Simulated scan of single mutants.
Amino acid sequence: MAGMGAVPATQSFLAGEKVTASKLTAATKTPLDFLMNPPRCAAYTAVSIPCATGVSTLVSLDTESWDTDSMHSSTNDSRVTINTPGQYLVTFYARFPSNATGYRQLNFRKNSGGNAAGGSTMSTIALAAANGTATFLTRTFELNCIAGDYFELFALQNSGVSLSLDSGQRVSGMEFRWIGI
């Protein structure tokens, strides 16, 4: 389903119209196939990312769990780009190692060009650090998206020392799932 780009339209039947295999396929099978495997993407960092204190760091996403619509860019691996417009369920997350000082923050941005001040902030979450335990930040929400928009994640911490984001599937990354028009 790579490069879908559009939600398949359903077909109508007129009164008295002869049902053909191609019309029945267009009316039922094609839209159902789309709904059974909608556009979705999960990308994460498989390598720890150093985050200097007080500096927003672009989170690179070097590994995919899945990508049914060619959304994750291999050229700009921090980006997930929308190819099929619609409403998406979006989740972003990252885990910082234990450190008792300061706070940890994630900033989810649209069309930022790799710049923490570029584009538009779509969501930000921050938590105070806790000693003896990692700080895990996550947010899930619905977002209306248009084709061509792309999203990036920026991490910020102010512990006074450099900390590295933890890596791994569902540890530091982003997920998108098309849920409707």
Rank of each mutant, 00 (worst) to 15 (best):
163 L>A: 02
107 N>Q: 09
138 T>S: 15
102 G>Y: 07
79 R>H: 15
130 A>E: 06
21 A>K: 14
97 P>M: 02
97 P>G: 03
72 H>W: 11
122 M>R: 13
179 I>C: 11
103 Y>L: 12
8 P>D: 05
121 T>Q: 13
171 V>K: 13
113 G>A: 01
99 N>L: 07
69 D>Q: 05
51 C>Q: 09
75 T>E: 10
32 L>P: 00
7 V>D: 04
75 T>L: 12
119 G>H: 01
36 M>C: 08
69 D>H: 02
87 Q>A: 15
178 W>V: 00
101 T>S: 11
88 Y>C: 00
122 M>P: 03
114 G>W: 03
114 G>H: 03
30 T>K: 02
86 G>C: 06
73 S>G: 05
160 G>R: 02
123 S>G: 03
57 T>N: 12
42 A>K: 10
20 T>N: 04
110 K>E: 12
58 L>S: 07
1 M>H: 08
117 A>Y: 14
146 I>G: 12
98 S>M: 07
80 V>T: 11
107 N>K: 07
169 Q>C: 09
181 I>A: 13
171 V>Q: 13
164 S>T: 00
2 A>M: 12
125 I>G: 00
7 V>A: 03
59 V>Y: 02
61 L>N: 11
159 S>R: 01
158 N>M: 00
162 S>F: 00
28 T>D: 01
51 C>W: 00
168 G>L: 01
53 T>K: 04
86 G>L: 00
99 N>I: 08
115 N>L: 09
111 N>I: 01
136 F>R: 10
47 V>S: 14
81 T>V: 13
120 S>I: 06
87 Q>R: 15
32 L>E: 02
169 Q>P: 07
98 S>F: 09
46 A>I: 01
101 T>K: 09
94 A>L: 12
140 T>S: 13
134 A>S: 15
120 S>L: 11
96 F>I: 02
93 Y>M: 08
75 T>G: 10
77 D>C: 11
122 M>F: 05
68 T>W: 07
149 D>Q: 15
24 L>Q: 08
81 T>R: 12
76 N>T: 14
20 T>Y: 00
39 P>M: 02
107 N>C: 04
50 P>G: 05
104 R>V: 10
158 N>H: 02
149 D>S: 15
63 T>R: 04
63 T>Y: 06
2 A>C: 12
104 R>H: 11
175 E>G: 09
175 E>D: 07
85 P>Q: 12
39 P>K: 02
25 T>M: 05
120 S>T: 13
124 T>Y: 04
172 S>K: 05
163 L>R: 00
3 G>C: 11
37 N>S: 08
119 G>K: 02
72 H>Y: 04
100 A>Q: 05
91 T>N: 09
18 K>L: 14
80 V>F: 02
32 L>A: 08
175 E>N: 09
100 A>R: 06
68 T>K: 05
165 L>G: 06
64 E>I: 15
68 T>N: 09
56 S>P: 10
157 Q>K: 01
169 Q>F: 10
112 S>D: 15
66 W>C: 07
55 V>A: 09
79 R>G: 12
151 F>H: 15
164 S>R: 04
141 F>M: 15
155 A>Y: 00
71 M>K: 13
106 L>P: 05
170 R>D: 09
150 Y>S: 05
139 R>E: 11
22 S>F: 10
18 K>A: 14
151 F>N: 13
13 F>Q: 02
34 F>E: 08
100 A>D: 03
172 S>N: 03
7 V>W: 02
52 A>Q: 14
170 R>I: 04
123 S>K: 03
35 L>M: 12
153 L>D: 11
